[in-house]
Amino acid sequence: MTTLERQLHAAPRHHRYVLTVTFIVMILFTWSVTAISFKSVDETGLKIASNIFKGLLNPDLNLLFNFSTQSVPYLLVETVAIAFLGTIVGAILAIPLAFLAATNIVPRPVSWVTRLLLIFIRTIPALVYGLMFIRVTGPGPFAGVLTIGISSIGMLSKLYVDSIEEIDTKVLESMTSIGCTTFEKIRYGIIPQLLSIFMSIMIYRFDMNMRDASVLGLVGAGGIGAPLIFAMRGYKWDQVGSILIGLVILILIIELVSNKLRSKLVKG
């Protein structure tokens, strides 16, 4: 018997713990299943489901390959623009908040107040921000950009703070000892350590914002969400199929590009 096998056999057994957790999970699963009801599923519902499936298999090609202001390509470009600009706005606003929330940069009272503010920002869903900004700016892409920007601040700031608190402070102490100014310490001591990490976080958030921007159109904040919900309400499943196909292709492309960029930034 090898050393690894002896260690495996000598490891303590947690049968009671495993059985208890399994029992609790089974109870929760059984309780959840009882909430499922098939009473509302009738012939009409099955027919609608069949029409949805047919629409996905037979999309409206004219809508998919046309380049008018109501076509899928134009709306996808608008959605990308909303997500991109919103990410830039959120990333810029998150930087000073992140430094104010970092315990190794500012006093703890200032840090805790800023963290409470960031928690409050993260608590409000993006759709609520969208409804608020639509009242202020009116329906359209601008409301979507502001919504994406504000809703991005919470997550970006939190990830920025984690990066800031992990920087090598010995570099800053060395720069202080040779008489560097605050600007020089930020320019040559902090930014080089954080730039690639911040860029990687921004790309990750942009990937998430693409999905949020697609949904914001449901409340009138621009993008492809509004045509999607209108097509669904009008039972135009071929148009729904075209929009969903365009969204899937776009998300896949952005996923591949963002993963490559982030891997290069991490390696660099």
Rank of each mutant, 00 (worst) to 15 (best):
Q7V: 05
I153D: 01
L252P: 00
Y160W: 07
W237C: 07
S68E: 01
I191P: 02
H15R: 11
A226D: 15
I243R: 03
S163I: 09
A101D: 02
G268R: 11
A102C: 07
F23Y: 08
I245S: 03
G222D: 06
T69S: 13
V41K: 06
I92A: 06
I178N: 05
I88D: 05
A226E: 15
S71L: 02
R115L: 08
L117Q: 03
L97Q: 07
L194N: 05
K170W: 08
G241V: 06
L28S: 11
G220K: 01
V21G: 09
E255W: 02
V41E: 10
A81Y: 05
A143L: 01
L159S: 08
L146C: 09
V248S: 11
Y129D: 09
S163R: 11
I191M: 09
P139L: 11
G140C: 07
M26G: 11
I148P: 00
L63D: 06
L250K: 01
R135K: 13
F230M: 15
Y235S: 12
R6P: 01
L159V: 10
E165T: 03
H15K: 09
V110C: 07
I254R: 00
S68V: 07
D162A: 12
I88V: 14
G223T: 05
D42C: 09
I134Y: 00
I95V: 14
Q70F: 12
P59D: 02
D162Y: 05
K170Q: 15
M210R: 02
P141C: 00
F230A: 11
S37D: 14
E166M: 10
K260H: 10
P192S: 05
I203W: 01
I224G: 00
A231M: 06
G179Y: 10
L85Q: 04
S177D: 11
P192M: 04
P59A: 01
Q70M: 14
I88G: 02
A10G: 15
M1A: 14
L63P: 02
I253E: 01
G234K: 10
G149D: 05
L216H: 06
F133P: 02
T22H: 00
I121H: 01
E184L: 06
K170M: 13
S152K: 04
K39A: 15
L194H: 06
Q193V: 08
T123S: 14
K170H: 14
L265I: 03
I178S: 11
F38Q: 10
L4F: 10
I52N: 04
K267M: 12
L19H: 04
R262A: 07
G241M: 03
Y188N: 08
L127M: 13
T176N: 15
F120G: 15
G225H: 04
D60L: 07
N209Q: 08
S32L: 13
I36P: 00
P73W: 05
H9K: 13
A98Q: 02
G179E: 14
